Simulated assay, not measured.
Amino acid sequence: MSKLFHVELVAVEAKVWSGEAEAVFARTTEGELGVLAGHAPLFGQLAAPGQVRIKVGNGEELRYEVDGGFLSVTDDGVTVLAETCVPATAAAAH
Rank of each mutant, 00 (worst) to 15 (best):
K55R: 15
E22F: 05
E65V: 12
V78W: 02
V16F: 01
Y64Q: 05
I54S: 04
E13P: 05
V7Y: 02
V24H: 11
V78S: 01
G19W: 12
K3G: 14
G34K: 13
G44K: 11
A47W: 07
V12D: 12
D76C: 01
A37K: 13
L46G: 05
L9D: 06
A40W: 05
E32K: 13
L33A: 04
S72I: 08
S72Y: 10
V10K: 10
P87K: 15
V78F: 01
G69C: 10
A37R: 12
V24N: 06
G44R: 09
L4I: 00
G31S: 10
G57C: 07
D67A: 15
A21R: 02
P41F: 02
V78A: 02
G77I: 11
L46K: 07
H6Q: 14
F70Q: 11
E20W: 12
F70W: 13
A26N: 03
D76T: 14
T84Y: 06
G38N: 07
A21S: 11
V56E: 13
V10A: 09
V12L: 14
S2F: 11
T79P: 00
L9E: 12
V7G: 03
G57T: 09
S72R: 15
P87M: 08
L46S: 09
N58T: 01
V66M: 04
V12I: 11
N58M: 09
E20N: 14
D76R: 15
T29E: 15
F5T: 10
Y64S: 01
L33T: 04
I54W: 05
G19N: 07
L62E: 03
A37E: 14
D67S: 14
C85H: 06
T28K: 09
S18V: 09
R63K: 13
S72L: 09
F5D: 05
G19Q: 08
G38C: 09
G57N: 10
N58L: 07
K15V: 06
M1F: 11
C85S: 13
G59N: 01
S2Y: 11
K15S: 13
V66K: 03
V35D: 03
F43L: 15
V80E: 03
V35C: 01
E83I: 12
L71M: 15
K3V: 01
L71K: 02
L9K: 08
A37M: 07
L4V: 06
P49N: 01
V56Y: 08
V56I: 15
L81G: 08
V56W: 08
E22A: 09
A23P: 02
G68F: 07
E60V: 02
G31C: 07
V12H: 12
G68T: 08
N58R: 14
G38W: 07
A37D: 12
V73M: 06
G44Q: 10
G68E: 02
N58I: 00
K15M: 10
F43D: 00
V12F: 11
E60N: 14
V35Y: 01
D67P: 00
A23H: 06
Y64N: 01
A37V: 06
A48M: 04
V52K: 06
V52D: 07
S18D: 13
L71A: 11
K15I: 04
L46Y: 10
V56F: 04
V10Q: 13
H6P: 00
T29C: 05
R27D: 14
K55N: 09
N58K: 15
V52L: 09
A47C: 05
A82T: 05
R53Y: 04
A88S: 15
T29H: 07
T28D: 10
A11L: 02
V78Y: 01
K55W: 05
L62W: 05
V73S: 06
T74W: 04
